[in-house]
């Protein structure tokens, strides 16, 4: 099984643990990821803030490239990338006027997008397209732990492109269950982690992350799984900062859903780059 792959900048940078574990665990499942050639940054939340139109055109370029390379479905593991690409894809497919406008800009670069590509979040693809049962078959080391799935915002919102209902999403929980874990229910599943606020407004940013961690702590979960590098960085890397700033103690190990998947499928910690998580040590305690 082959599928198009849009890694995004984070996965090529500091959060390469995500891409390493994604590729290795998908390989076990027999999914080959075909990277879009010469993809560019989706613009994240910065370029839309700077120039909304340019940001949308950047996303559209990736879609045009995927179309050119005959990739019918592309998966985006990063929620921010997913949001940018999927929304522009939705908008262009559903608004002929907008399609025309965007293509006018793309044509300057010799590109065109006709709307044949489908953008999917990696989790969505895994659970809903690949199938839970097929994953279950391949589980070697069931992870018998209480696990909190953190969905974040862009996985479930806005409505046009949400993977599922924002109020009580279940996709990741069903995956956790398939891997032998016990999903826990909590209010903060789709609460915002503050995204890049940590950079632009640290005080507010840390507070929002804390809100999320607090609500997970209550559930006595043993592991948090994430599906977005930004969420991951906030919960994982900033956990230590928050513990210091607010004088609290969480001890909540955070890992990507792909790392959890890889471990369950029998990969080694190294193969899923587990040690790259800052909260890795906590897991060992």
């Amino acid at each position: 099984m082959k599928v198009g792959y849009y890694p995004g900048c984070s996965l090529k940078g500091m959060e390469d643990a995500y891409s390493i574990s994604l590729i290795s665990s998908f390989k076990v499942l027999g999914i080959e990821l075909v990277e879009i050639e010469d993809w560019n940054c989706c613009g994240a939340s910065v370029i839309p803030s700077y120039d909304y139109k340019f940001a949308n055109a950047l996303a559209a370029r990736n879609l045009a490239l995927a179309e050119e390379q005959n990739l019918r479905t592309i998966i985006a593991p990063c929620s921010e990338c997913y949001n940018r690409l999927a929304y522009i894809n939705y908008k262009m497919k559903n608004d002929a006027g907008y399609m025309e406008k965007m293509n006018k800009i793309l044509s300057e670069a010799g590109l065109e997008y006709r709307g044949t590509v489908e953008v999917k979040h990696a989790v969505d693809f895994l659970v809903n397209d690949f199938g839970i049962d097929k994953i279950k078959e391949k589980v070697k080391n069931p992870i018998n732990k209480k696990i909190a799935s953190y969905y974040g915002c862009l996985f479930v919102r806005p409505r046009e492109i949400s993977v599922e209902s924002a109020e009580n999403p279940k996709t990741m929980d069903s995956l956790v269950e398939a891997l032998g874990g016990t999903p826990v229910d909590y209010d903060g599943k789709t609460k915002c982690c503050g995204a890049s606020l940590v950079v632009s407004n640290e005080k507010v940013g840390l507070q929002t992350i804390k809100n999320v961690l607090d609500s997970i702590k209550e559930t006595e979960a043993e592991i948090i799984v994430t599906s977005c590098p930004l969420c991951h960085a906030n919960l994982d890397t900033q956990q230590l900062t928050i513990e210091k700033e607010f004088k609290v103690n969480y001890m909540l190990p955070v890992m990507y859903f792909t790392q959890l998947l890889g471990l369950a499928l029998g990969l080694s910690e190294r193969e899923v780059a587990l040690n790259k998580n800052l909260t890795y040590e906590v897991l060992k305690v």
């Binding site: 479930v156 409505r159 503050g194 995204a195 407004n201």
Partner: peptide
């Protein structure tokens, strides 16, 4: 500062 603080979580939109 409102628009600068927006974390683009799309809660409002939803």
């Amino acid at each position: 500062n409102t628009h600068w603080l927006c974390a683009s979580c799309y809660n409002c939109t939803y």
